[in-house]
Computed example of a mutant assay.
Amino acid sequence: MSDVRNDDDLAVLLSTAVDADTLSRLHRRLEQAAERADLIDVAYTTIDSPVGRLLLAATPKGLVRVAFDGEDHDRVLETLSQKISPRILRAPQRLEETAREIDEYFARRRQVFDVPLDLSLSHGFRRLVQTHLPEIAYGQTRSYRDMAELVGNPRAVRAVGTACATNPLPIVVPCHRVLRTDGTLGGYIGGLDAKTTLLDLEAAA
């Protein structure tokens, strides 16, 4: 991306001890130049939350990935570079609306997310299940069997569990609201503590 930086920026980096503010300004200039040149296929940022640090990533179509700390953010970005595009840049401004909505959710001021979504990381039956997850109302839960019946395949209970476990957009696409048929939590990509936190947050509202 040499066309979106200039020699003055490089001179600053090479000739001075760069403090955090200077680095931030330089990165913002790089981000703005990349935006103008339409060179960002995947923008990302990280935010703090009650369930740990979250990585948010978006394409021009919409939010494509929400990743928990335990997923290894570097590995998630590498996967995005392979599956979507290597033209990835930290660009917080592009994720400001998503970050705001997630903050509102944890503050119990939001029950439904409005940001556009890019579901291109999911396919087939998994994508079908994930498309229906937002139909589970805030504060409500459904079983794997309920979801299998909802998508028209009552025998696909285990496949529903897999679709929830591989959901690339947890929290925003609420797979935490799906429990095992016996009412126990089941697995969760962010860990059972995170799933419990989300369910308790919604139940308290």
Rank of each mutant, 00 (worst) to 15 (best):
R90W: 01
L55W: 03
F106R: 07
Q93A: 11
T22E: 13
Q32F: 00
G62P: 08
D72H: 08
A34N: 05
E31K: 08
L14W: 12
V42C: 06
V64F: 03
A57H: 07
L39H: 06
A67V: 10
I84V: 15
D74F: 09
D21C: 00
P50M: 01
L13G: 12
R65L: 15
L39N: 03
A33V: 00
D74Y: 04
S81Y: 02
S49N: 06
E31N: 11
A37S: 14
H73L: 10
F106L: 02
A33Y: 01
L55G: 11
R25K: 13
S85V: 08
E101S: 09
P50I: 07
P92F: 03
A107I: 05
G52I: 03
R100Y: 06
F68E: 03
I47D: 03
D38L: 11
V66T: 14
F68L: 09
D103L: 14
V18G: 11
I88G: 04
P86M: 09
G70N: 13
G62F: 09
D103H: 15
R87I: 01
Y44M: 03
V12E: 09
L56V: 08
A99L: 06
T16S: 14
A107W: 13
T79Y: 10
A58S: 14
I84P: 03
F68S: 01
G62I: 04
A20V: 10
V12R: 11
I102E: 07
L63D: 02
E97S: 08
L80Q: 01
E101I: 11
D72Q: 08
L80M: 07
R25T: 07
I47T: 07
R108P: 03
L55V: 09
G70P: 07
L39G: 08
P92Y: 05
D41P: 04
L55R: 04
E71V: 04
R94T: 10
Y105A: 13
G62A: 04
I40E: 11
L77P: 06
Q32N: 10
D74W: 00
L55F: 00
I47V: 14
R29I: 05
P86S: 15
R65W: 03
R75T: 12
I88R: 06
E104F: 10
T45N: 12
D74L: 12
P60A: 03
I88H: 06
V18Y: 07
D19R: 11
E97Q: 14
A57S: 05
G70L: 13
R94Q: 13
R87A: 14
R87E: 15
R87Y: 04
S81V: 02
D19F: 02
R36K: 12
A37Q: 08
V51F: 00
R109P: 05
T22A: 15
T98K: 04
E71I: 03
T22Q: 12
R94C: 01
L13C: 14
P60Y: 05
A34G: 01
A58V: 02
E104T: 06
